[in-house]
């Protein structure tokens, strides 16, 4: 008798378990896994350092050509050369020609974003917003994109710069985007 009762209890328990498990599975599939923790805006802002082509993400502050020149001499010239010619022993190529020609960049935001994200090589992230604006102003002037020794850049004026080579970028159709898709809005 004892054995028989146990068997019935186990069977009932198994049926109950299968009902509740299938209910949970359906709920999960219909809704969400629910893993991960939701983020608030302040927390996202700590990591969201990229610059969009329309200037979204550019920080407050400003910097001019003169600050850029000083910063370049202190922080950049060792590898990039006094005249942006590049120091091969340090691994830097010329910024005047080839595939790293600053004057051929499609957006000034590409330059600001890269300097802020990756430079200087040995201490990335150490430049202030003012120094970074100044560096972009200095580099655009040195490479002939702008011709204004008093150029001062901030979020608005940097986003307004039209790079002369922008229209020479063509889009590989295999990317499934067209030039029209990527026109500036």
């Amino acid at each position: 008798m004892f054995a028989r009762n146990t068997k019935i209890v186990i069977t009932l328990a198994a049926v109950a378990a299968s009902i509740s498990l299938s209910a949970i599975y359906k709920a999960t599939a219909a809704e969400k896994y629910g893993f991960g923790r939701s983020l608030g805006e302040a927390e996202i802002a700590r990591y969201d350092s990229d610059i969009h082509t329309n200037g979204k993400g550019l920080p407050s502050g400003s910097g001019n050509v003169e600050l850029g020149r000083e910063t370049f001499e202190l922080q950049c010239a060792l590898c990039h050369g006094e005249n942006l010619e590049g120091v091969p022993q340090m691994g830097a190529r010329s910024m005047h020609e080839g595939r790293r020609d600053i004057e051929k960049l499609p957006y000034a935001s590409s330059l600001f974003d890269f300097i802020r994200r990756s430079m200087p090589l040995t201490d990335p992230g150490s430049l202030s917003s003012e120094e970074t604006y100044g560096l972009v102003a200095y580099l655009l002037n040195e490479t002939g994109v702008t011709d204004n020794p008093n150029l001062t850049l901030d979020a608005k004026s940097l986003a307004d710069i039209k790079m002369p080579n922008r229209s020479n970028f063509i889009i590989d159709p295999a990317s499934r985007f067209t030039a029209e898709d990527l026109e500036d809005k």
Binding site: D50, T53, R99, R100, N168, F169, I171, D172, K185
Partner: peptide, 23 residues
């Protein structure tokens, strides 16, 4: 929109014989 980051517009884009750059 895309970001046109340093690597996608310099190192890994393809300059063509007609001076256009394939991105």
């Amino acid at each position: 929109t895309p970001w046109w980051t340093h690597h996608e517009v310099t190192e890994y884009a393809d300059p063509r014989p007609d001076d256009k750059i394939r991105a």
